[in-house]
């Protein structure tokens, strides 16, 4: 992972939605009531159980706090939303935590109210199938569909590749709103291959035997899509980010984060 990717901040922010309900300028209820906190001896971090890596992220955040000689203060997000706009994180950061674990380092994907630490691990988007005859994407016949988690960096890479192919050689690529929906479409036979975030597959296989028969295949002819994952914070937390980046470097170098990933059998690796 290049350190340049650790700063993924652009002024032109993305907007979401199927109607104009979204804002470059995020807001939070009573946002003017949140001032500078006085207790600087804690590292307040948020984790979200909807995120497949949240237990791993918790362990990494605790290690980061320990490395910075800060008292870890965990806040666990309680929400049942399947999907939310990233501006919601603004309110969470104002109210509950200094950093929110579990955000991918994608240049150009964050507005200027937010910034990210350097990555504490890297993970892949993976092609998954239950078909024993498919060992690489190349083995998939052109008429058989792929269910791709909608709008991901890997989905965009797949679509770019398909567009360059002659029509008769393209796989149908069906967008699926979430990783879960992509895996469901694989289980129910709507698609033959699903393109999902590897940690999601890992979490599903831990908790539900229905997913046990799914396996990762070689992405060839596409290269793997790998993204770093770090913590998001408000863009005025420059001192904290510098400290966290140093801590992540140190814990990456001494094997602490690698050990945490290994303890959980988590499908990620650490950039040295």
């Amino acid at each position: 992972m290049s350190s340049a990717l650790a700063v993924a901040v652009l002024s032109a922010g993305p907007i979401r939605g199927d109607e104009p309900e979204f804002f470059e300028r995020p807001s939070a209820p009573n946002q003017w009531t949140f001032g500078r906190r006085l207790d600087e001896s804690q590292l307040r971090y948020c984790v979200d159980p909807r995120d497949p890596d949240w237990e791993v992220a918790t362990a990494i955040a605790d290690a980061l706090a320990q490395g910075l000689l800060l008292e870890p203060q965990r806040y666990v997000i309680d929400s049942e939303y399947v999907s939310e706009d990233i501006t919601k994180v603004y309110a969470i950061l104002l109210e509950h935590c200094d950093i929110h674990m579990g955000f991918k380092l994608i240049p150009g994907s964050y507005s200027d109210w937010a910034m990210l630490t350097r990555a504490y691990y890297e993970a892949d988007y993976v092609f998954v199938t239950a078909d024993p005859d498919i060992n690489a994407l190349d083995d998939l016949a052109p008429t058989r569909p792929i269910g791709a988690t909608l709008g991901t960096a890997a989905h965009i890479r797949l679509v770019s590749y398909l567009t360059a192919l002659p029509a008769e050689e393209r796989w149908p690529a069906f967008p699926m709103g979430t990783n879960d929906l992509a895996l469901t479409s694989l289980l129910n036979g709507t698609v033959d291959v699903a393109l999902v975030w590897a940690p999601t597959l890992w979490a599903k296989q831990r908790e539900d035997s229905a997913y046990a028969g799914l396996r990762i295949i070689d992405p060839a002819p596409l290269p793997p899509t790998t993204l770093g994952v770090g913590a998001i914070m408000l863009s005025n937390e420059t001192f904290l980010r510098a400290a966290l980046d140093e801590a992540i470097s140190a814990l990456s170098a001494d094997g602490t984060i690698t050990d945490i990933l290994a303890e959980y059998g988590f499908p990620a690796r650490v950039e040295q």
Binding site: P52, G151, W197
Partner: peptide, 9 residues
């Protein structure tokens, strides 16, 4: 892309 977080788009 719109996949910065597992939940957040």
């Amino acid at each position: 892309p719109l996949d910065p977080g597992a939940i957040y788009t």
